[in-house]
Design a protein around this nucleic acid. Structure first.
Lengths: 224, 224
DNA sequence: AGGAGTTTGTGAACGGGAGAACAAAACGAG
DNA sequence: CTCGTTTTGTTCTCCCGTTCACAAACTCCT
């Protein structure tokens, strides 16, 4: 009864958006193994989620399945890719070419999903002679021109923590509106700019918390 | 009125656990800048959260503040560190010493928070001659003995996706009960084993989704 | 000592997401 | 063509997490 725009469903829940890339990867795996059709149960198992949750997630995109049959793998894969936006090409700049920046520049998972690293920038002049993943490491001063010339809207920060906020400020001023931050700092950015944070030590600390609980109360959940 | 064990509060919500490391980092920063006392408002601003949420989070640990005054930075920092478990030493093994494994091995944020990398393992014999971050890269076959000798309970997987599940299986069999997975795969592990996933391309895809929405409907939220 | 001003800790309302359960729809057999 | 089977799409309920709002408690000033 709700009037929904057929070509592009509105307001997909954030939790669902975070899972769509997982479904996309699972579908790609199924397609590579020759599967042409799958049920929500199979796909959910591959993606590591509940089948009811999967179906509800997919229902936000539209009705792309066939009752009694399941989903066409290739068709659903394309629909999810289109919804996320990875059918188009996303130019990306990486700032901070230390150990982590190297790893990110060489990560094949970016290019295969529509992300194209157009430039590697570092503030240290000693690094400007290096060539990483087929790209020259350039001066951070070139940020504005690179962003403008390549219509870059996504920036990756892999600098030390102290530099991260100023890099973010320059990125925002240059026109970047989405930032993936690997530096262990809280970034403050204006409204309209999205920031996602990946913090390696926080993940370990969360594991440590649960690990500690396991050893303190070993019989709390598991009957010995 | 609820009878709460005073020394160690029970069942801290998962969302709170995920934020405690952020508070810990913020407190460390405040301590280094010479601040001895702070209000929930200040700390919340530093940590990038709402002050009400911060107070509720801290209330799960106990009453470590003083009304009308605020929190003692050093005291609160210690209490949170103890609750998370980073006052003790956590031995960690890293498997897969490619670009990302290098970056992780060299990441200083681990050691400074109680995590000690005790071994770097790789299946490729060509890498066994390398020394990374002061540690020999050893054979993956040594996993079991290393885990046993060092009482390792946390493992980090930085291998390609195809190897991740078998590495995880070996880790679990060797006695590891917490896994931080950087490989782009869904791991299946038995109950009692915690897995946290860090997926670089998923983060970018989430950003791409929102970025796409911005350009498609620029006036949807912001009044022009 | 008493009152004004601050700041914490928490009870209560609110919103969103997860999971169960079921109706609707497609297919195939007879 | 009809009935049974399979699987999707959706509704409903419950639970977790967030936020508001306020009482309790502490300090400082007079």
């Amino acid at each position: 009864m709700t009037a929904r725009t057929p070509d592009s469903a509105r307001d997909i829940p954030e939790a669902t958006v975070a899972r769509l890339p997982v479904y996309l990867r699972a579908l790609t795996g199924l397609a590579e193994s020759g599967t042409t059709t799958c049920s929500s149960e199979e796909l959910a198992a591959t993606a590591g989620v509940n089948s009811a949750k999967l179906r509800k997630d997919l229902s936000y995109l539209g009705s792309y399945g066939t009752r009694g049959v399941g989903y066409d793998v290739e068709y659903l894969r394309y629909q999810i890719a289109r919804e996320i936006g990875v059918t188009q090409d996303w130019p990306v700049v990486i700032v901070g070419i230390g150990n982590l920046g190297h790893a990110l520049a060489n990560y094949s998972g970016f290019r295969s999903r529509g992300f194209r690293v157009v430039a590697l920038l570092d503030a240290d002049p000693d690094r400007h002679e290096e060539v990483v993943a087929g790209l020259d490491v350039r001066s951070f001063e070139d940020l504005e021109s690179i962003v403008a010339d390549n219509a870059v809207s996504i920036g990756v920060i892999a600098t030390p923590a102290v530099a991260a906020q100023s890099v973010a400020d320059r990125m925002v001023a240059a026109g970047i509106t989405s930032i993936l931050n690997f530096a262990p700092t809280v970034l403050s950015v204006p409204d309209g700019v999205d920031v996602r944070k990946v913090d390696l030590s926080i993940e370990l600390q969360i594991l440590a918390y649960h690990e500690q609980r396991k050893s303190v109360a070993p019989g709390a959940e598991v009957v010995s």
